[in-house]
Design a protein around this nucleic acid. Sequence first.
DNA 1: GGGTACTCTATACACCGTACAAAGTTAGTC
DNA 2: GACTAACTTTGTACGGTGTATAGAGTACCC
Lengths: 261, 261
Amino acid sequence: MVADKGKSSSGAGDPARTLELLWRDGAAAPAGRRGPRQGLTVDAVVDAGLGLADGGGLDALTMRAVAQRLGVTPMTLYTYVPGKAELIDLMLDAAFLRMERPPFGPEEPWRARVTAVADANRALYLRHPWLVDLRVVRAPLGPGVMAKYEYELGAFEGLGLDDVARDSALTYVLGSVQASARAELDARAVARESAMSDAEWWDTHEPLLARVFDEEKFPLAARVGEASAIAYGGVYDAEHAYAFGLARTLDGLAALGGAGA
Amino acid sequence: MVADKGKSSSGAGDPARTLELLWRDGAAAPAGRRGPRQGLTVDAVVDAGLGLADGGGLDALTMRAVAQRLGVTPMTLYTYVPGKAELIDLMLDAAFLRMERPPFGPEEPWRARVTAVADANRALYLRHPWLVDLRVVRAPLGPGVMAKYEYELGAFEGLGLDDVARDSALTYVLGSVQASARAELDARAVARESAMSDAEWWDTHEPLLARVFDEEKFPLAARVGEASAIAYGGVYDAEHAYAFGLARTLDGLAALGGAGA
DNA sequence: GGGTACTCTATACACCGTACAAAGTTAGTC
DNA sequence: GACTAACTTTGTACGGTGTATAGAGTACCC
């Protein structure tokens, strides 16, 4: 049984097997192997998973759906991948591995470099919305995770940080990007699921809320909420939230390092 | 059917009914009402849900488990609450409503106030770990959500922010706290689920990883990762991450307002 | 004393991840 | 060339989920 416990991405199974899968190189079949040839590859399974999750979120990622997309029965997948949790680990590593990593110019100021890292991560989340629902602590130590970490650490050169602070700074930036990406994706998903725009939603709820909401009890909330609603036309402005957050984050880091540029 | 689509907390059902539930006051039964008296209350259902989710996460929150805890059959719950999504909405609002909100001193500097807000939110997440798994955009506009918003907006007095910027700043602070809370909770959950401490986990994975990991390809990652591991004894230090993040966030806000203190 | 609105219960359905066992296919060994 | 062992693929089945539906019983209004 066991099933789908928790938020996935675990490395729950045999660690050796999982690592082997993560670092698998193209070498499909080790030649001397009995039984029928495998009709698929791990990559094909991972790609099918990515397609489903990118399109419909983790809810759309069912072993049955992956199997159907590949034209096999569900249990066939288990000869390629130990289980769903490990498949998600592989998908995560694959998504990381495929990110663009344009080399930093030697004279490029750290603000530009960190901004590039933040932008790349935002793009990653928008392309793979299901990533925000995953545990990333103790992520599968695959080639994608490693390459991403290596590249992004390089963005903090010139801030005068020691190794420990550099790791903290990166964690902090990534957390900040994930926070705004989550907000953006949530807003999108809610709008799509309810098939209702922010404005429509507000229109249906406003009259009801007026009956229960005591403006005198929440004066600040009423005033600020209204001001924000007017400023953004009643719509959550993801672009603004991201830009605001990134600017704050960079300023916060600048105060840390004392470095200019 | 429909089921559990997505990350819950939707307001998917009839908005009027949901708002009514959110703002329900103690008035249990409206007197002139046919049929048997209800043996439970919405509050009891919400509390049962909170107990389950606080202890075992959203996975432990099943309608069957809630029902069992209350000594009724699962379908009975549906006379109190339209469905699971709405129950979660109510739980979220209840958790918000129960947060402590000690009034800010008139001379209290904004850093202290914002720090208090951040600390309170961190405590909230640690008490109700399932909150990090929820969509909060378009949260149910209940009394808890409103009271929390009102209170927290008050922390940004004296920063010289207009209403729109004040809302953005609050969103930013809350996002930053949630990011570190998520990391902390993920670390905890992974450790508990795998029944393996960080150190043990590393011990089992390290030899395997050494076979595939090319230190020359990832020099920064190797060096920084090792430095962090040594600094924290191989253990993820949530306290440090939170303090670091909060300090950065406050500095970032300071750069925005230009206000000292 | 109906009728009616309500609460609560039992049953059932479609879906999930995956354990288990059987059937079919290939490679190595004699 | 036959046999065996290892492997892939499949079908079936189990225990779990949220909740639709229908029925049984209860308390109020007329």
